[in-house]
Every structure is written in structure tokens, then in C-alpha cells.
């Protein structure tokens, strides 16, 4: 269960403060698929980053399964990001100098949630599941953008997170690939009961969600 209360994010710029997120209350039940929609610049990514433990709110609270995540210590917050959240960024986010299999195994190694053998075994399994079984040893630059995004999803899944936060994971991909990747995410949501929060511009996609959150100007519109 995800709860946001009075969540704010103000950016301080040379032209004054910008309220990217201006007081959001939100609740997403465990195992749900929620879609966040809104125009560019409405504050979707800022909201996601605060939910995922990546950006400290200016005010308000994020609670995941009863834990106030921004009240955690540095190390506990790192463990939260590592174990509980699978984050899929809006942009390419693989480490370019590591192979796909290293990239996918990395969160398990960082969090010591699995030993080396297990981490690599699971990484290979997930990549194979994403149709990348033949590209374990490939470097990110050696595969397509869609394949990179699949590898990021595999990385997000390696520690069996409670929640996947996907920030426009398919915005730069063609329609067919977008559908394939969305199918993967929806399958994870359905089969494993992983909560899925998805930011998308694709309204048809959002229609499939159990909960739609429409954001404009940093706030939720009904």
C-alpha cells in the first residue's frame, strides 16, 4: 500500500521557486495498477521520484506498507530503493560499460540480497524471459532501445520489489515494441501481484489501469 500525504516539491531556480508538485494526496492499494497521466511539465516525474525514494519532498509524506520512507536513515533508504522498488526511468539508464547481465545483476549484488551465483542465475533468467537470452554478454550500446528498456525492466525485477515505478517507459519506442514492453509490465503486475505505477501519455494504455491519476500543474485533477 502506497500513501502520499500533502506531497510537495519546490525547485529553487534563479527565477524563484517552482512548485513542480503542489500538495498531492494519493493512495494506491498493494498489487494495483495505477496510471499517472498529465501534460508535459505537470510534475509526474517529480512525483514518481519522491515515491521511489529518489528525490526528497519539500513537504509531505510518502508511506509504503506502513513505512515513512523519507524518515528512514540513509542506509535504510538505500535498502528501500534496492529491495522494495523497481524503478524504470524515462531515459536510458543502463551503465554503458557493463554487460546487460552485469547491469541486471547489479542491484542484487549491491544489496547482497543474493550471492553472486544466484544473482547471475536470476539475471540470466529474467533477461531470457524478456527475450534477451542471446544478449547476456552484450553491452547496452550493442542492443536496440527497446531491448535496453527490457533489460531495465529485468533489472527492476531482480530483487522481487513490492512496487514497480515506470516513468514513461515506452515513450521513445515504436508502437509494436511499446505494446510488447507494456505486456511484460502488466504480466508482472498480474502474475506476481507487484504494484505498478505507470506514467504514460498513451490514454489507451491508461484505460487498462485500475486507477487513473490525472495531474495538472502539480496537483491532482478529478
Amino acid at each position: 500500500m502506497l500513501t502520499c500525504i500533502g506531497l510537495r516539491k519546490d525547485y529553487v531556480t534563479e527565477r524563484g521557486a517552482v512548485a513542480a508538485v503542489a500538495g498531492i494526496d494519493l493512495e494506491v492499494a498493494a498489487g494495483r495498477f495505477a496510471a499517472i497521466i498529465g501534460r508535459s511539465g505537470s510534475g509526474k516525474s517529480s512525483l514518481m521520484a519522491m515515491i521511489g525514494g529518489l528525490s526528497r519532498p519539500s513537504a509531505g509524506q510518502v508511506t509504503v506498507d506502513g513505512t515513512d520512507i523519507w524518515g528512514l536513515s540513509e542506509n535504510d533508504l538505500a535498502a528501500f530503493r534496492n529491495r522494495r522498488i523497481g524503478y524504470v526511468f524515462q531515459f536510458a539508464s543502463l551503465l554503458p560499460t557493463l554487460r546487460l547481465v552485469d547491469n541486471v545483476a547489479l542491484p542484487a549484488l549491491l544489496g547482497r540480497s543474493r550471492d553472486g551465483t544466484d544473482a547471475y542465475g536470476r539475471a540470466a533468467e529474467l533477461l531470457a524471459q524478456m527475450g534477451l537470452g542471446d544478449h547476456l554478454d552484450a553491452y547496452p550500446s550493442e542492443v536496440s532501445a527497446g531491448e535496453q528498456r527490457r533489460a531495465v525492466i529485468a533489472r527492476a525485477l531482480i530483487n522481487d520489489p513490492a512496487m514497480i515505478l515506470a516513468d514513461e517507459p515506452t515513450s521513445d519506442l515504436d508502437e509494436q515494441t511499446e505494446i510488447e514492453i507494456m505486456d511484460e509490465l502488466l504480466a508482472v503486475n498480474r502474475e506476481r501481484g507487484t504494484t505498478l505505477v505507470l506514467v504514460t501519455h498513451n490514454l489507451a494504455l491508461a484505460e487498462q489501469a485500475e486507477q487513473i491519476v490525472h495531474i495538472a500543474g502539480g496537483g491532482i485533477v478529478a
Binding site: G52, L54, A78, R81, N82, Y87, L95, L106, L110, N159
Partner: peptide, 15 residues
Amino acid sequence: AELGLLKSIGARRSQ
């Protein structure tokens, strides 16, 4: 960016 990415996937500060 690389450090941020590592931190996003759970790298501790000490790491």
C-alpha cells in the same frame, strides 16, 4: 549521472 543511477538502484553512500 552514473553515481545517481547506482544510488537509484540501492547503492549505499559508502559504496
